[in-house]
């Protein structure tokens, strides 16, 4: 299983994130989002920010989660390399409790390759596959650059 895969796209960034569970999928999708802008290995974990989201569907929850990570990046002027997600199905909807770990942007050490403007719904996909008795969740996301 490839946790994060970037695909060719002319104007924007398209990625696939995978996980053996929904929690892992969401964590890898967060990593893919930050990884589109900066090498996550250059980000030290010195602070963490909590994230709490509710949504009516899994797709909406993933969209809101990624948008929230981007929001924190911009208002906290921070980059992240650690993502912890706990998903709970709740009645008709879903709830996410999580945490992103990272540090404030340091212009000397953090070299940006691009800046993500937003998470789009274009070709947005979330699916579950089973291969050799193993469960694999995959999300496909296009980011606006």
């Amino acid at each position: 299983m490839e946790p994060v895969e970037y695909l060719e796209h002319t104007a924007d960034v398209k990625f696939r994130a995978r996980g053996h569970s929904l929690d892992e999928l969401f964590e890898n999708a967060g990593l893919a989002l930050i990884g589109a802008m900066i090498d996550p290995s250059t980000v030290r974990v010195v602070e963490s920010w909590p994230v709490e989201i509710e949504a009516e569907s899994l797709e909406a929850l993933l969209y809101e989660w990624l948008s929230e990570v981007l929001y924190l990046f911009e208002v906290e002027l921070a980059v992240f390399s650690e993502f912890e997600v706990d998903l709970v199905g709740r009645g008709a909807g879903w709830r996410l409790s999580g945490r992103v770990g990272g540090e404030r942007i340091d212009g000397e050490r953090h070299l940006f390759e691009t800046e993500v403007k937003a998470v789009t719904l274009h070709q947005f996909e979330l699916r579950r596959d089973e291969a050799a008795g193993e469960e694999i969740w995959t999300a496909q996301v296009v980011l606006d650059i």
Binding site: E8, H9, T10, A11, D12
Partner: peptide
């Protein structure tokens, strides 16, 4: 209008 992807450009 772009003709080359960002990954390719880099």
């Amino acid at each position: 209008g772009r003709i080359m992807s960002r990954t390719q450009a880099k």
